[in-house]
Design a protein around this nucleic acid. Structure first.
Length: 834
DNA sequence: GGGGGAAGGACCA
DNA sequence: TTCCTGGTCCTTCCCCC
């Protein structure tokens, strides 16, 4: 009955147009409202981004239509048979025995604010800010003002709109009161948000049938003001009747039964025993308790109950009888958009196939089975048959936890890093509140053009502290910054997320455990100062991270991780080899050793900008000085000789990197060079690092890769121009006479394959590994290890060494070896413990 | 082909 | 001047086995 957006203006954005499928938004002047929305948005970065997204949806639809055109009769009838089989299976399992209720508070946040400030009652108002509204009252909805609309646009639609700032604590408190009522009808109710819940009242109804009237009688309290409310079970409490001041926001639903007088002269209401009466009673009690109204839907499953609760909104309820025909009839003319889970994109895709109602959905199921994924069409089939969950599952394990913030444009590096750290801290606090840890750290960035990026890193162990999170997040952030440099990253949002990931540690885990740390009553983490589990590995890795980051190293920060991924402490060694300078530090005292590593690392100065030649020289010198102080009688290590350095010379550096310390290998992460005494490092042919090992057999160069793999980027035309037409192969070092990336990549692939398959290279490495058991050396000199090698290394020990792939700046990928789950910056410290 | 990780999106309140 | 936040689930791609 309503005009679809496509029939309006041709250049119209369906994603931006008013969404009037919410209650209280019928019969509005859509065209006029949409015109105002468009005028306020046009030309903004947000609008441009929406335009882009809409084009992507259109392309998706085009692809789908193309696919549809190629479907044969045969395919269709085969799919039809499949659909029919599935339909009859589902029909057999149809369960109409449960009574599911979906309760939804009416304009919740707005209603709470109105209750507490009755002056707002007859004014159009919304809760939120100038940049975003959370909800609006029904008066404001008449102007087209609705949730998820920015306040400044709402103000244009309705200049008299009152915007009340959001007050979560208050809504949480009210929500708790409402939930107390829910619990009386279903102790296992499922809250979906502060204002919404599903209940299974089947058991309650069973009992209720035998209840005497007294248990179904509830006193009617009249509030004297909006704020002074009376407890539901207040007993003999006297209430003053002041009819005119009642803050009731919505008229009672028509089904209200007349009030009776009880013995004490107060008004009471008696409720029946059927489902509708029970739900009416529940809504009555919610209103008595909070002065807020709720709407409800009663149906045989959750999907239908949700649709029903919207039917008589606000302050109403709807019951769909528990018989198959009623369900089928109900679903027939229902617009697909009404179903929870079908949003604007799915609606548009289905619309392109001529499907707008649920009956269409059923008719076209064979087609949908061919065009959509299995999960998608199964979902559609359930909807078209009116099926949904019949039992409410509570307490599902939490899957992730995140925190994000939007701010004015931010381009300064220090600001970005400190915000990142702040977010890590907030997240760590939230994690602590629930005593949880996570294995995957995700950084979310939104730039000023509203483009969203997420970058994730999965660790072998679950982590939870600020330092642990930041160690990973800052790596991810740095990689992004480097990726757009020399332009700054212009951000408008940053977020931080931890996710579980299936594995040994079982992802998101609680911290409480027999061996792990404990949580004090105050909620602060405590650790045994010297956990016996703390292996050299964990200590070293943390010291590397913190030192490189110039952060203070709290010994407790990672003690808990060792319970998960600890390895046996190395036995029989009375010295440890520094992963940075390659010298043996003649101590088993980890504190001493870590101090040495820290100093070595700070000498290296990881990836900082604006380092000069002199700093390049100073770094190692500092290192050496410290070494002299630390080590007494430490013997020098024999490193790999010519063969190793030959391989090293194959590392290619990014010509765009200007700093001498922070060079980058092509397709890899920024690499720091650490020259040990007498090293000869020179930049060879614009972007190739050349190391000569003639003067000294010791290993002299250490490549540290502080970032995660480079993210996928679309080739930037300007940077290609900088590069010039010639591309140099990182493997054979020969300049290729092509600017065509496909051709060039093919060449590199060929080169790499030859490299991989070249037998004596394998043998050399294998020998080195066996003879010297110096994985560290290999890791450093070969940031681009290849499949065959990584497999070989993997097979050697318990450590999850693996190959991973880094992106070539202009597309394509390079293969690289690292420890599974570790950012490359931790490479050297882990390598040490091998 | 299936499984798993990473990135991106759809969708929800 | 100003278009959120915090969650879940799904899809797509790529790799490994």
């Amino acid at each position: 009955s309503m005009a679809t957006t496509e029939t309006l203006d041709s250049g119209f954005l369906s994603r931006m147009a008013l969404n009037d499928n919410k209650a209280g938004m019928e019969g509005l002047n859509r065209d006029k409202i949409n015109k105002i929305i468009m005028e306020s948005s046009k030309g903004s970065r947000f609008y441009e981004n929406e335009l882009k997204k809409e084009q992507q949806v259109n392309q998706r639809i085009e692809r789908m239509m193309l696919q549809k055109a190629h479907i044969t009769e045969q395919q269709l009838s085969k799919a039809q048979a499949q659909v029919e089989k599935m339909t009859s299976d589902l029909e057999r399992g149809r369960d109409l025995s449960r009574v599911i209720v979906h309760v939804d508070m009416d304009a919740f946040y707005a209603a709470v604010e109105t209750r507490d400030c009755p002056d707002l009652m007859d004014k159009p108002m919304a809760v939120g800010s100038m940049s975003m509204l959370s909800t609006s009252n029904y008066h404001a909805r008449k102007f087209g003002v609705r949730a998820a609309m920015p306040g400044f646009i709402a103000k244009k639609l309705c200049p008299n709109l009152v915007i009340v700032p959001i007050n979560f604590d208050k809504y949480r408190a009210v929500s708790a009161e409402v939930r107390e009522v829910f619990a009386d009808y279903d102790p296992h109710f499922l809250p979906m948000s502060l204002d919404e819940a599903y209940l299974d009242i089947s058991d309650h109804l069973e009992q209720r049938r035998g209840w005497p009237e007294a248990l179904r009688t509830h006193r009617l309290h009249t509030n004297n003001t909006g704020t002074a409310r009376v407890e539901d079970h207040g007993g003999l409490q006297e209430t003053v009747e002041l009819e005119g001041l009642s803050p009731v926001l919505f008229e009672n639903s028509p089904s209200s039964s007349p009030c009776l007088q009880d013995a004490a002269g107060g008004e009471v209401e008696v409720f029946g025993t059927c489902a509708e009466e029970a739900v009416r009673e529940m809504r009555f009690r919610i209103e008595q308790k909070t002065s807020l109204t709720a709407s409800a839907g009663i149906a045989p499953n959750m999907m239908l109950a949700k649709v029903c609760s919207d039917k008589n909104k606000p302050n109403g309820q709807y019951r769909l009888p528990s018989n198959r025909q009623a369900v089928i009839d109900f679903i027939q003319d229902l617009p697909v958009r009404k179903i929870s889970g079908i949003g604007k994109v799915t609606e548009k895709m289905l619309g392109a196939l001529g499907i707008t109602s649920c009956s269409h959905l059923g008719q076209e199921m064979a087609l949908l089975a061919l065009l959509f994924s299995e999960t998608s069409w199964h979902h559609f089939l359930h909807i078209s048959m009116g099926l949904g969950s019949t039992h409410i599952e509570r307490d599902g394990e939490r899957k992730s936890m995140s925190t994000e913030r939007t701010f004015g444009e931010m381009g300064a590096l220090e600001e970005q890093f400190s915000l990142c750290r702040e977010l890590c801290q907030d997240l760590a606090q939230d994690l602590q509140k629930e005593a949880l840890k996570g294995k995957t750290v995700t950084l979310k960035l939104k730039n000023v053009n509203f483009e969203v990026k997420t970058r994730a890193w999965t660790l072998p162990c679950a982590v939870a502290t600020t330092e642990e999170l930041f160690a990973v997040a800052k790596d991810l952030l740095k990689t992004e910054i480097d990726n757009v440099s020399p332009q700054p990253l212009r951000l408008r949002l940053m977020g931080n997320l931890t996710l579980p990931s299936p594995g040994d540690c079982n992802g998101f885990e609680t911290r409480r455990g027999p061996t792990s740390s404990t949580t004090t009553p105050e909620g602060t983490q405590t650790h045994t100062p010297k956990n016996t589990n703390t292996s050299a590995e964990t200590d070293i890795s943390m010291s590397a991270l913190t030192a490189s980051d110039k952060m203070t190293h709290e010994p407790s920060a990672h003690a808990s991780t060792s319970s998960c991924c600890s390895t046996e402490p190395e036995s029989g060694t009375d010295s440890l080899t520094c992963p940075v300078c390659f010298r043996e530090v003649n101590t088993t005292e980890l504190t001493v050793f870590n101090r040495h590593v820290d100093q070595c690392l700070s000498g290296v100065t990881m990836g900082q900008n604006n380092h000069t030649d002199t700093e390049l020289e100073r770094g190692p010198r500092v290192c050496e000085e410290e070494v002299e102080k630390e080590i007494t009688g430490g013997k020098r290590e024999e490193g790999p000789k010519e063969k190793g350095s030959e391989l090293l010379s194959r590392c290619m550096l990014d010509s765009t990197s200007t700093a001498n310390i922070s060079l980058s290998t092509v397709g890899l992460n920024p690499v720091c060079l650490n020259t040990c005494p007498n090293g000869d490092v020179s930049i060879h042919r614009a972007n190739t690092l050349k190391v000569s090992s003639q003067s000294d057999p010791r290993v002299r160069v250490c490549l540290l890769s502080p970032g995660g793999p480079r993210p996928m980027t679309t080739p930037k035309p300007e940077s290609r121009d900088h590069r010039g037409p010639a591309l140099t192969c990182p493997v054979c070092q020969e300049t290729q006479d092509t600017n065509d990336l496909t051709l060039f990549n093919r060449h590199v692939d060929l080169c790499l394959n030859q490299e991989v398959l070249h037998e004596d290279k394998c043998v050399v490495l294998q020998e080195m590994l066996q003879r010297e058991s110096k994985f560290s050396a290999i890791l450093r000199i070969l940031p681009c290890l290849i499949v065959k090698f990584s497999n070989m290394v993997k097979a050697q020990g318990p450590h999850p060494l693996m190959q991973y792939h880094a992106n070539w700046p202009h597309g394509g990928r390079l293969k690289m070896l690292a420890l599974k789950g570790q950012p490359p910056s931790t490479l050297c410290s882990y390598a040490q413990t091998l």
